[in-house]
Design a protein around this nucleic acid. Structure first.
Lengths: 135, 135
DNA sequence: CATCTGTACTGTTAGTGCTAGTACAGTACA
DNA sequence: TGTACTGTACTAGCACTAACAGTACAGATG
């Protein structure tokens, strides 16, 4: 359902990721899991910035990135909305990102000497936790 | 077997990771997979730097990080050696890193809309590829 | 017209990655 | 003893990025 009320977005303060990255990751996941849907309106640049206590430019940068990637649609003077579901990235780009993610993950995890079954279990658990957040 | 000859380490040039990170990741994986073993000697700071065409300080920084983490042992005036296999990280630290890795991986992958089975398959494949590199 | 929206600049500050150079102490060997 | 290796410890500088600060402008709405 397309909500007209701006949504709340929560950003963890103790995160090592850059703020822009936290916002883009958060929105992408919320859209992917269906927590927010095409047509929903996002908080305004200034509104979200004030809510999070960060600079409006930082939010604008995150929104701009999400817009060029096809996740959001901007309507000048109105606000930002979740774009209709379509292919947001090219096949090649998707494959490349998936590749990078897997490589980095394995590089991070292998030295920790964790059993493969536990790795799979934890990933599934994390997936499930995200899906469970859906309205 | 403890080799006395310095090993070759290859660093990809088209990698987005910082050089220090590429080195530390590479060495950690080589040790984890058994490609290099406790007692093996690593290339000298200056030697590896020259081989890779980078600054000796960069290599030294990577080696220092690996040493403080317990992966390597330095013998002043002699060189760096793979440390004996023991608990390299505390339980809590391991858990924390594993958590971070899973969280980031899921954040990267979920928006790509890839089937969970394929995710697991690719991870297993990557694991297997690393294990296959062992002597 | 006033006020909201996104967008687009310039400029500054702080941190990091990397390079460059120098110096010093321990080890090995002729 | 001298020389040439090893790792280690500094300082300094450059380039890039994240984030903040400030300002301005155009479109939409009432």
């Amino acid at each position: 359902m397309a909500r007209t009320v701006p949504l709340l977005i929560d950003i963890a303060t103790g995160d090592t990721r850059p703020i822009v990255r936290q916002i883009t990751d958060g929105v992408r996941i919320k859209i992917s899991t269906g927590e927010i849907e095409p047509g929903d309106q996002l908080p305004s640049v200034r509104g979200l910035a004030q809510q999070l206590g960060i600079n409006p430019n930082t939010v604008a940068k995150a929104y701009a990135e999400l817009t060029t990637e096809g996740w959001l649609e901007a309507r000048q003077g109105l606000g930002l909305y979740v774009a209709p579901k379509r292919q947001r990235l090219s096949r090649g780009e998707r494959e490349r990102r998936f590749d990078d993610a897997v490589q980095r993950f394995v590089a991070d995890v292998v030295p920790l000497n964790i059993a493969p079954e536990e790795v799979h279990a934890r990933i599934d658990a994390e997936f499930a936790a995200l899906q469970r957040r859906r309205a």
